[in-house]
Simulated scan of single mutants.
Amino acid sequence: MATYQFLTFVLPRKPIETKYGGIPKQLEIKHAEWEKYWGNYDVELNDAPEPEFEDAISTKWWKGIQINIAELRNEIDKIIPRASWNNESWKIENDEVDHDLSIDYNEKENFIEDFRFRTDMRDSKLNFLNSMLELCDRNDWILMDENGNLCNPNIIELAELLKNSKAHLFITNPTEFFDNLK
C-alpha cells in the first residue's frame, strides 16, 4: 500500500447494530494476529486459509446480506475502472492519483467476504471518495479504518478518521511520519 493511501473497509450497518445494539465507535482489530497470519501465508497455495481468530476484519459481516454482486460491480465500474489482473479489483493510477478498490466475493456461498478501498490522499478533487461515500450511504453501509474506527459514509465523519491516519501524517508532515517509523 502506498503511504499516501487511506485504507477504508466497507461494512453493512445492520449486522453490526444487531451484534452491538448500535454502532460502536471502534471494533477490535487484532494487528499482531494478522501479522502472524500473513507471516505464515503461503502464496503458492493461492487460497488464503480462514484466520484462527475473530476480529472486525475476519468477521463475516456480509454473510446473510442479500446483494446483487453483478449490479454492485456495474455501479463500481461507473466510479473506477477495473484493474487488469482480475474481476474483483478496480484501480485508477496515473500521474495524479492512485485509488483502488477490491471486493472478495464468495461465489459458492454468495456473500462478500471483504470490501475495501484505498483513497489517494493527494487527490484534491475528491471525485472517487465522494462517489464511494454516496454509494455507501445509498446502501446503508458504514466505513471502518485500519484501526477499527467506524464512521458513517460522509466526508465530515471520515475526515475525523483521516486526520489520525498514517496517510494524513505522511502528506502533512513526512519528517514526523518517518521519525515515527523508527
Rank of each mutant, 00 (worst) to 15 (best):
E44K: 10
A48M: 12
D95L: 08
P81D: 06
W61C: 03
E33W: 11
N127A: 13
K108G: 13
M144T: 01
N149M: 09
S102R: 12
R116L: 15
A70S: 15
M132H: 07
N173R: 09
Y41I: 10
W34C: 08
A83I: 00
E52D: 14
K19R: 15
I29H: 03
N139P: 01
D95W: 02
D123E: 00
P51M: 11
D95I: 14
D179N: 14
I69M: 09
P49M: 08
W34A: 08
F128R: 11
E113R: 13
K163Q: 11
T172C: 15
I112Q: 00
F170L: 03
P51H: 05
E17P: 00
I79R: 05
L135P: 05
K108A: 15
P174Q: 12
Q66V: 12
E33P: 06
Q26E: 13
E157N: 01
L7Q: 11
V10T: 01
N94Q: 01
D55K: 04
K78M: 12
F53R: 02
I171Y: 03
E75M: 10
N164C: 07
D42A: 10
K91M: 05
T8N: 04
L181E: 13
S131R: 07
E71W: 13
G64H: 08
E113H: 09
S124C: 01
D120A: 02
E52L: 14
K60G: 00
S131Y: 07
S131V: 12
N154Y: 06
F9K: 03
K63I: 00
E157G: 01
N87A: 00
Q5H: 04
D47K: 14
D123W: 04
F177I: 06
D100P: 05
S165D: 08
L158H: 01
E75L: 15
A167P: 02
N147E: 14
K182R: 15
E157S: 10
P15G: 06
L126F: 12
L135K: 02
D95F: 11
E50V: 13
R82N: 02
Y41F: 14
E157R: 03
M1F: 09
F115C: 04
K163T: 07
V10C: 03
H99L: 00
L162T: 12
H99I: 05
N154T: 09
T172I: 10
I29C: 05
E146M: 14
I92M: 13
A70N: 14
H99Y: 06
E35L: 14
F111H: 14
V10W: 03
M132C: 10
F9D: 08
P49A: 06
A48Y: 10
E52M: 12
M132L: 14
S84W: 11
S89P: 01
G21D: 00
D55A: 08
W34Q: 02
R138Q: 13
A159K: 12
L169V: 02
W141S: 01
H31P: 03
R118F: 11
L11W: 02
N164S: 14
E88G: 08
N180M: 11
A48T: 13
N110A: 14
I76A: 00
E93K: 11
L7F: 13
G39P: 09
I69Y: 02
N40W: 10
E146S: 14
E75F: 10
I76D: 05
I155F: 03
T8R: 03
S131H: 04
I23D: 04
W62F: 08
I76P: 02
E107M: 07
I67M: 07
K63A: 07
D42W: 04
D100W: 00
E160N: 15
M144C: 05
